[in-house]
Nucleic acid binder design. Structure first.
Lengths: 312, 312
DNA sequence: GTTCATATTTTGTCCTGGACAAAATGTTGA
DNA sequence: TCAACATTTTGTCCAGGACAAAATATGAAC
């Protein structure tokens, strides 16, 4: 705690880091739209005031939701927040009791009550079992957390706290089930290089391990060539990829196509996650999942088509 | 598997992603040193051949080790590899039996034998207990893996595989110990925004939880302001930060200083990891750890200085 | 001969302003 | 309602100049 100095502002590299907007984009917006309008330091370099960075953050989130810069840059922060609030696609949720539980969990996240958070998730996991926990709790909860994040009700530490706790729970649960080491099919899980979110992978793993699949996760951000090589070297039956909501559709499409070409035809390619929503179904020989609930059945279907290997 | 087309090369954005070298840097090297010398597509945009990207990757690693571009750019890939090999600071390691185990584990990583890898780590964990496992196995093993990675003996998937397995093991072990929820002191763990590596945090947590500390991890990449806010709001006694080997020293120094100023004096600030090696000890009121082994004793020392809170 | 302060080189990042293709949107006709 | 085409929007790329921070070399003082 020290004397609060007048807000000095951030250099362009910090703004790029904080907002996710490329330096080139920040400069071209300034030229084109007149916003942002950073001050300059002695060296002529841009210095962005904190309030402009905040507005940039809001704009960034709206763009990720499909809106376009020209319509956003003129608005004031209040209007932007309102837009974000209206845009959040909170699912109606059937069971009111379950909804109440979700609200309680969200409250724990907001208040950093990590122990309460851990305990309530743990209880649900024990009550429902791993697969139903993922499908009925984590999937909707992730949407709720995503919406709250969009609305600005959650900040970075809260989102991180939630992710950490869920990760701890899932990894522990998966570990305890993973006795079936020689399972079938062999599934390779990972994400493309620009995808940082690991929860989707863990959830997929949690859905498949109880079915007896042999899941090997490479974590996030594996280069395409490496995915291809690892899949062939490890004789995997299925390569599974996860895409979170803001992943650029084109990149996903191109990547999946290219990977499909590079993989042997007998290797299945599965992809899921909210990032694939509006994707053209033009992909041949790639299984797209609208919901993580489809995974167990997809596994069973795969087994029916591969009776020989199923007992290897 | 399709017909192998002649190497088309990568656009500058992909090279930035793959090598970690900024687009501006790639262009200024080309202007200054004549390397890289990418082809151009119909639109006049750079297209980097794969072999140049490989060389750039080697150069990048050597720069991270402290060498300078001018001396590296002229060398051919073989010479660069040799430099990397000679530079690897493989620690001598005392116990030969332990060394053999490490070699076996490295072999499992190289061959993607994830089940053997999991089992051998698991056995060592059971035999040594969590704290000794981290200090005596993971710490040296991380160095070995880092060296192998430097030399190019490990690629992305191997490194990811290792990280995933260790993470699974540690999270499961920590979860099973974490009964002491109301522990003391309260420790907040995280990393700075440009630090992606999570293993250091988990290892620190694994060293402290058995001592009865209440550890809350925010995972990687928390903005400075958010670290400060979370630390104050959560009434943490200690904020612990982890820095991996290539973290820019200046950024660590500035960040730690700024965080120190922003935190209440009664909140301790601890920092560790190979990224802090050559850092000036000019930081006042920041505890720097040369080795993770120092953590348990540091905790005990802290408790001696805070007898009142120790039973709260 | 070591330690500290000062000069010199190296190096990464920032700048301007122009260009253009890919994506998104609007329009037209079946 | 959908597909094909025209138009606008938008992000990324380019060249080439500039400069401060980091790294290294030089020299003075103990």
């Amino acid at each position: 705690m020290n004397t609060s100095s007048p807000p000095p502002g951030l250099p362009i590299a910090a703004v790029e880091r904080d907002t996710g907007l490329a330096k080139d984009t920040l400069r071209v917006w300034e030229r084109r739209y007149g916003f942002p309008s950073p001050a300059r330091d002695n060296n002529g370099e841009r210095v962005y005031p904190a309030d402009q960075v905040d507005k940039l953050r809001l704009i960034r989130r709206l763009i990720d939701q499909g809106l376009r810069p020209a319509k956003l840059i003129g608005l004031d922060p209040a209007a932007l927040s309102e837009l974000l609030g209206g845009l959040a696609a909170t699912p109606p949720s059937g069971d009111p009791a379950r909804s109440a539980q979700f609200e309680a969990i969200l409250k724990f996240v907001r208040l950093h009550l990590h122990e309460d958070l851990r305990r309530s998730l743990q209880q649900l996991l024990m009550k429902l079992g791993l697969q139903r926990f993922v499908g009925e709790v984590l999937a909707p909860l992730n949407l709720l957390v995503g919406d709250a994040w969009l609305r600005g009700e959650l900040e970075v530490p809260e989102e991180h706290l939630y992710t950490e706790q869920v990760q701890n729970l899932l990894r522990a649960a998966i570990s305890s089930q993973a006795a079936a080491s020689e399972g079938c099919p062999r599934v390779l899980l990972t994400t493309f290089p620009d995808e940082q979110h690991a929860l989707g992978l863990l959830m997929a793993e949690a859905m498949m391990v109880p079915e007896g699949a042999c899941c090997i996760s490479l974590g996030t951000q594996t280069p395409l060539d490496d995915i291809r090589n690892a899949a062939q070297a490890g004789r995997f039956d299925i390569v599974a990829l996860s895409f979170s909501s803001a992943f650029p559709a084109r990149q996903a499409l191109d990547g999946l196509r290219s990977l499909r070409e590079g993989l042997p035809p007998e290797t299945a390619l599965w992809a899921g996650g909210t990032g694939l929503q509006g994707i053209a179904r033009k992909l041949t020989d790639v299984r797209l999942f609208d919901s993580i609930d489809e995974l167990p059945e997809a596994l069973r279907t795969w087994r029916e088509g591969h009776p020989a290997e199923a007992q290897a």
